[in-house]
């Protein structure tokens, strides 16, 4: 049962990394799209593609927290005590990002739109970096068990954290670029297809390079995880690499549906590889899954909630994605008409 809860946790982290990550990555491309004129069209594609889904994607994070603090509360206490700074940065980044995105859609004035856009873009990069750095700190054993605080600075400013942070940013950018290529195609915008395709290749190359460097860093800094990556988790590492390359391959010519799936598989396999590599530790070499696990009553309740979630949310999500992909959710509301009889009464 403890294992089931841990699997649930890692599944949620993986899904968040993919879908939440793709949203963050889209923000990265927003940030790098250049000046107002040059960046206008890419930004439109980006807006169009994450509009209807971002809020739902983002609930996965809540779910991760809830599973962590309910089923593995000792790990949650240790992580939040130690990783106070990057978690705070991530929290503030999420506020800025979510709010500026919603506001940006609701205002029409160009200047206001642009400043919301800038906040949105910068925080989209900050948040995945923070999460990556936290994961790196955990992987390299910087978080002690027992609800104690580790080093407040070194725990997230260390080689593994830096590499994982960069990896998070580049992988999310890569996945986003692949998905955006697909979306641009749906909008039959060949220029944008080319635009995002180039970026997908570039981000893919950077992510691959960071991952390679990362392996060396992990070998010296996080030996337990390295051991896992080169044994139990090796198949996942290979899947990730192959799928990542495959996605780029499938982007040649007309973007192919398989390209999207391959990019998603590449990112997902990478996160899962991390989980498998540090199994059965939640906090490598200090706290195992079973040592951190809550009493069985709690775990049962969470698994029941997760079961209900599968029954209710999976169909709902599929509905959302299908409607979105079919273009049935084109924009918020409709263009509006003026209030009637508003000639004399405007205050």
């Amino acid at each position: 049962m403890d294992t089931a809860a841990a699997l649930l946790l890692f599944a949620a982290i993986t899904i968040y990394a993919i879908f939440g990550g793709a949203d963050f990555g889209a923000g990265f491309w927003d940030l790098t799209a250049g000046g107002a004129r040059r960046g206008e069209r890419p930004r439109e594609v980006i807006d169009h593609s994450i509009g209807p889904v971002w809020e739902a994607n983002h609930v996965w994070l809540i779910f991760i927290f809830v599973v962590l603090w309910t089923c593995f509360s000792e790990a949650y206490a240790s992580i939040t005590l130690t990783m106070f700074v990057p978690l705070t940065v991530a929290a503030l980044g999420i506020v800025l990002r979510g709010a500026s995105f919603a506001f940006g859609k609701a205002v029409f004035r160009q200047r206001a739109r642009r400043s919301f856009g800038a906040i949105f873009a910068v925080s989209s990069v900050l948040v995945p970096y923070s999460f990556g750095a936290i994961a790196g700190g955990i992987a390299s054993g910087q978080v002690p068990a027992g609800g104690r605080a580790g080093d407040p600075l070194h725990s997230w400013v260390n080689p593994t954290s830096v590499v994982m942070g960069l990896l998070a940013v580049s992988v999310t950018a890569y996945v986003a670029a692949v998905l955006l290529t697909w979306d641009a195609r749906r909008l039959s915008d060949e220029a944008m297809v080319g635009y995002f395709r180039v970026r997908a290749v570039a981000a893919g190359a950077v992510a691959g390079a960071v991952a390679l460097v990362g392996l060396f860093v992990v070998r010296s800094e996080a030996s337990y995880v390295f051991g896992g990556l080169t044994s139990r988790a090796l198949p996942l590492v290979i899947i990730s690499a192959v799928a990542g390359l495959g996605a780029l391959f499938l982007l040649r010519g007309r973007p192919h549906r398989g390209g999207r799936l391959a990019a998603i598989a590449a990112a997902g396999a990478l996160v899962l590889a991390w989980g498998v590599a540090q199994w059965d530790y939640l906090l490598p070499e200090t706290l195992t899954v079973s040592a951190a696990a809550a009493p069985s009553g709690t775990i049962t309740a969470v698994l029941v909630a997760a079961g209900l979630a599968v029954l209710l949310i999976v169909p709902a999500f599929i509905l959302l994605y299908v409607l979105d992909q079919r273009g049935l959710l084109p924009e918020e509301g409709v263009d509006d008409e003026p209030d009637r009889g508003s000639g004399a009464d405007r205050a």
């Binding site: 609930v59 809830v66 599973v67 603090w69 309910t70 509360s73 809550a294 009493p295 709690t298 949310i313």
Partner: peptide, 13 residues
């Protein structure tokens, strides 16, 4: 968290 968290699991849903 093991107790306090339980309602939140359903809230998340």
């Amino acid at each position: 968290g093991e107790a306090f968290g339980v309602p939140f699991a359903f809230e998340g849903l």
